[in-house]
Design a protein around this nucleic acid. Structure first.
Lengths: 332, 332
DNA sequence: TTGTACGCGTTATCAA
DNA sequence: TTGATAACGCGTACAA
């Protein structure tokens, strides 16, 4: 198949290609009206679309930003992506989405791929295992922003939940409902910002209120078997704070398999609001993140630094929304 | 920020840029070993990544394919996307994903954008309202494949479920469970392939088995209120075949809101297997599509026509998997 | 008001 | 074994 170029248009309209270029870029105030018409007609007839690749090469701007998320299976990631796409759509920027699958090697190769594709900026939920890579980017002054996580000691701005506040809210709610046993479930904490912050906030609340800490922080597979074991052996606390949606799935799966009835046998509050929580039986009490707001703010921040309107290096915190439903039992 | 080019490498290594190019493209069988080393060192030190944009312009190949899905909210779409990405990853192709949001105007603008970005091929779940657009592409011999839907009278190959078989299976299962009332729920049918095929198969089964047809085919919002009305007025059949995941959500939401207990008050079988169906209360009996297989086959088909290995214009049908769980009651 | 010529970073051809 | 040069399609000085 042959692709139509500006030359084909010029030829058909009997003008030079620079005239066509002028026309296409709306610089035709002076142009002869018949010239304009001939060009318009040629563009129409040939169904011409400018070669974006050639334009980018010339302009040194691709009008494209890359998004790399640590793990696209999180509802948080997909919602964030939607918000970012929406924002950039209004600015005529395109977005390339990559999923690192929690693999630093993949993450690095995606960064290189995107740089090689000459993206104008990067929005990343980092795996946190590629410190050097991002340090380089930062030092080269390449526009990058983080979401949900950040790298200690690196001034790349990050947009994330006020995790401590969210956990406190959940904890206090369970206290109000007279729970004396409150556990915490998450994937392996490592140095992953939200996990660290959520677990620390949980532990702090335990201390403040004299609750005995109970935590399970391991891979999803292990979570599944360990939760089942505790449920079967009646060694599970009466209530659980679940750190994210993926962990929640394991809790629900395990509950189902062991015939555990929520909230009769187990109360839960989890972070991240996902579609089915509303009409699940029972409906699930949840801490929702303002994903749309976070994504939009990050996108706007990146857009501004790309266009040198201003650069900021600060951390941006966002507040959760507590959605009370029916997965917490009032103890007595 | 300054980007490193092949010229920088050449300068640093004290060779010409064509030599660097040779080196980078693994044509160094003859090259002097010291030359090789100098280039390697320069690439390393400068952290050079070839400019993919320039390469694409020169090669007239972007190693990139576009995916446009009618509506990304369908679990089917996201699973298909994963499968396609996985396949093309192994072929060193990149993928750009676009969501037309059921809007033909958006769809058209995405096609143009992707063509303008010089993608090598297109995989589309078409809205079916842009017949001319795809006809043009087809006639220009541009590589395109469809998934899930197809345009009548256009030889663009399509990869989709054997819908008739799937519905028959569900229908017969309900019959076996002694249901005398079997309804069908879907979004507006229009000319959308899977909806047409599923509804027709349903109606045919009704006729064959002397069941009185009951169908609700309207927008998700309307579905919500209409289902609720039927549930409240006791005018709902004893069992329902639900055409896809989005419609299923409305059924579940409505059931919840009206205190309808599944399967005691209402039995359901739905198409598309989504995460929570397994541990929902009750677990949901479901017709799963072989999304991974479909996506992979479509991707492979596109890859082959891009590389002129062979082109095929046929329709490819795939068989469903019936997953029996607990959302259907045995009537008596 | 329109056209010529050059450069963006790469690869390929051909010559040295 | 290496290098000079043209080309890919577009935008833009500058010239006409």
């Amino acid at each position: 198949m042959k692709r139509i170029t500006i030359n084909d248009v010029a030829e058909r309209a009997n003008v030079s290609k620079s005239t066509v270029s002028h026309y296409l870029n709306n610089r035709f105030s002076y142009m002869g009206s018949d010239t304009k018409e001939r060009i318009a007609k040629a563009v129409e007839e040939l169904n011409y679309n400018p070669n974006f690749i050639a334009k980018s090469l010339k302009n040194k701007k691709t009008m494209t930003v890359g998004i790399i998320v640590a793990n696209i299976l999180h509802s948080f990631s997909t919602q964030i992506i939607r918000a970012i796409e929406d924002y950039f759509y209004t600015k005529d920027y395109h977005v390339i989405v990559c999923n690192a699958d929690d693999d630093p090697v993949k993450e690095k190769s995606y960064v290189q791929m995107l740089m090689s594709k000459q993206v104008d900026g990067l929005i990343v939920i980092p795996t946190l295992e590629n410190e050097l890579l991002f340090k380089d980017l930062y030092e080269q002054n390449f526009p990058v922003v983080f979401i949900d996580r950040y790298i200690e000691g690196l001034s790349i701005p990050s947009y994330l939940l006020n995790n401590a506040l969210a956990i406190e809210n959940a904890f206090n709610y369970l206290l109000e409902k007279k729970h004396k046993e409150i556990g915490f479930i998450s994937q392996p904490v490592k140095n992953i910002t939200p996990r660290v912050e959520r677990k620390n906030a949980y532990l702090k609340s335990c201390q403040t209120h004299g609750i005995k800490p109970f935590t399970l922080s391991t891979s999803l597979d292990n979570l599944h078997t360990e939760i089942k074991n505790h449920l079967e052996n009646n060694t599970m606390p009466s209530s659980l704070i679940v750190a994210n949606d993926l962990a929640l799935l394991e809790v629900l799966r395990s509950a189902k398999e062991t015939g555990t009835v929520i909230p009769r046998d187990l109360s839960i509050i989890s972070i991240d609001d996902i579609e089915f929580t509303e009409f699940f039986n029972p409906s699930l009490t949840v801490i929702a993140q303002p994903t749309f707001e976070i994504g939009k703010a990050a996108a706007r921040g990146l857009f501004h630094t790309i266009n040198h309107e201003h650069t900021d290096y600060s951390t941006h915190r966002f507040n959760h929304q507590f959605i009370e439903r029916s997965s917490v039992k009032h103890e007595n």
